[in-house]
Design a protein around this nucleic acid. Structure first.
Lengths: 238, 238
DNA sequence: CGCCTGATTGATAAGTATCAAGGTCGGTGG
DNA sequence: CCACCGACCTTGATACTTATCAATCAGGCG
């Protein structure tokens, strides 16, 4: 019994180690080095729709996705919200919350989710010990900053239809052509309303780019090449 | 003659040292430490309207503002452009360009400008030598990322009038109530057109928040308190 | 003085949000 | 097993915000 438990622990730790090893932030480290960090990690489960943390909360934990999808978003005053990114396995949720004591976005489980969780203190201690991780963090931050600036320009310069195309293409590249997102969730990725997103999707269906109705709460992209062509049409490249 | 020249050099170096000392990135360092970096610095002058660097250029230099104002912006496909920030004395232009070999925004002199310039190589070498600077850089990046995300939400949730109010208030807090920006430049800070900016300004003039016509290419804020109240009205706080 | 840049105002049109009204599917409980 | 309920999807009509186009004005500078 005791043996079995120990074995389980080992297996769990191995899984979490793999998650970190595959992440961009820690990918450069040796497993041996990561072990120091894994000791402080736990796995936590969230039901579909559950809130993981909210903008403004004290950032007590660092998270990485083990299984499932997590939506990272910010709310607007008018009750709507904009989805900045959908995180999948081995994505970190808040690597950037290092400095700043509070989360600056909210995170919500899109389906049944398992997260790897590490306390703020051991996480920060580990960061300051490993120079290369700090450098990778700078690179990640710079990339994301760059991306958000592009998004600002995109919101001003492109019409809703094109923003939706970009969102679809980005999601497809990351998660494959079979997306389990509701129209509402897709809309919030492109910064528009559910109705407008639906109208655009209807048009795409007529052009044979996305499939019939897919199952409830899903979008299937049937012609990725054509989608890519449409995305590339109006811009240098994102 | 030779003495005078040496003296001049010293004075120039002292000025540049003050610029860096007052910057957020290097503010935590001792003058003695900064001297190692100053050695590699030069002062460069740009005329009003001159382009300092363009998005996509190889990032060969690090810049900080010594005198004058610099617009940091990105262009949209439709030829317009969005101004992310106006940098003043002791602001750094591209601290973030560390990782990534290219500038990801463009910079243009808003008036007669003097910049402190340091080659990429000595700048990077200095960074990797000074741990505290790297940490401050992470903090700066995180702050800016946060701000840009807020901007995304703002662009989606707030109407043009309010965005202009915010831009005005932000500029006033940084540069004082007498702004030398054309209506076009203000518009590009809020992501709108010149005409729309003018219409809003006309309304503000009627409410006594900004002054008569100011001089050509200028805006004078006469009632900062009222402006602040208007800004605070529609939102938690930016 | 005439040109050129920036400011101003008005009319118009386009793009989207908003409101309203079904329609469809799947799951749940009687 | 069936019926209902609720979540999601869909479509249409309308209104509003803001960009666009066009025209004029005002002041500085060569």
């Amino acid at each position: 019994m005791d043996n079995l438990k120990t074995y389980d622990m080992k297996a769990q730790e191995q899984i979490r180690l793999d998650v970190l090893k595959r992440s961009r932030l820690f990918g450069g480290l040796l497993p041996a080095e990561l072990k120091d960090l894994i000791v402080y990690s736990t796995s936590v489960r969230y039901d579909k729709g559950a809130s993981i943390f909210k903008e403004g909360d004290r950032a007590d934990f660092f998270y990485a996705v083990q299984e499932g999808l997590v939506k990272l978003y910010k709310g607007t005053f008018s009750g709507k919200h904009f989805t900045f990114t959908v995180a999948g396995p081995s994505d970190t949720l808040n690597a950037t919350a290092v400095s700043g004591d509070n989360y600056f976005m909210s995170a919500q489980a899109l389906n049944e989710v398992v997260l790897l969780r590490i306390g703020r203190t051991p996480y920060l201690a580990f960061l300051s010990k490993h120079h290369t991780v700090a450098l990778e963090l700078i690179a990640m931050l710079a990339r994301r900053l760059n991306r958000e600036c592009d998004r600002v320009v995109g919101l001003l310069g492109e019409d809703v239809e094109h923003r939706l195309l970009i969102s679809l293409f980005t999601l497809a590249r990351k998660f494959g052509t079979s997306l389990s997102l509701t129209r509402e969730e897709l809309a919030s990725c492109a910064g528009t309303t559910t109705e407008t997103a639906i109208r655009v999707l209807s048009r795409l269906k007529k052009q044979g780019i996305i499939s019939g109705t897919a199952e409830r709460g899903g979008i299937i992209i049937t012609d990725l090449t054509k989608l890519q062509k449409l995305v590339a049409e109006n811009e240098g490249w994102i």
